[in-house]
Design a protein around this nucleic acid. Structure first.
Lengths: 110, 110
DNA sequence: ACACATCTACGACGTTGCGTAGTAGACGAT
DNA sequence: ATCGTCTACTACGCAACGTCGTAGATGTGT
């Protein structure tokens, strides 16, 4: 159900429901429950808008992916080894992106 | 239950059980079931040894971590963005390890 | 004021994965 | 024959998840 995050931001339940309805046949309440549960898990934030709530992804997809990568790395034991294996798996393009990201980091940190 | 992988390799159920018993109070059959389930999920391989099976981790902890990192990255949408965020989260030491791993990769690939 | 639509809150049900464990059956050793 | 050791199969409780229904509050049109 995470593809709700593909939408821009701060949507009302109704809006998400309409959106989702185009591809899946779900009840309005189902969408609501999911949104609520995600909010409870802090994966989503919500703010009042009159009677209704507006939900917004607490963090973009990319941040979530990064968090998951961190979690995975933390379970590794030998982080060096894990990182080596990771870059081994990665495509050339991704390796280039990684180098780029690291370069940018270095530059920022001085 | 994954800390069974801390052990070296190719252990019989009995051996794993003995090992685990030192820190946790589990039934022999419990260990067996867990091993069996892990085997079904291909996280472990087994080979006959007389009547019994010997189990071996299909991949070391670090490989598993690397796989998880890959999975996370694949769910990112914008991989560049995800990698940037990832290196942002990472400690200095880990960033260094990453650079090292990338350097090694480059060297190997030419 | 009343009916109707729209929301939220809360509970419920089935499925799945997991940790734990018991029982049954096979087989070798004593 | 009886034990001990193994595997295979089944089961139970629990949590998470996807799905949804019902109840109650509140706003809107006539």
């Amino acid at each position: 159900m995470e593809q709700l995050w593909a939408a821009p931001d701060a949507l009302t339940v109704r809006a998400v429901y309409e959106q989702v309805s185009t591809t899946r046949d779900l009840a309005y309440t189902t969408v609501m429950t999911v949104l609520d549960r995600l909010a409870k898990k802090k994966l989503t934030e919500r703010e009042r808008d009159g009677k209704a709530w507006r939900y917004r992804a607490a963090a973009p997809r990319e941040e979530m992916a990064a968090d998951l990568m961190r979690d995975a790395l933390d379970r590794a034991g030998d982080r060096r080894e894990a990182l080596v294996r990771f870059v081994d798996q990665v495509s050339d393009e991704e390796a280039a992106l990684l180098r780029e990201a690291l370069a940018r980091l270095e530059e920022r940190e001085g």
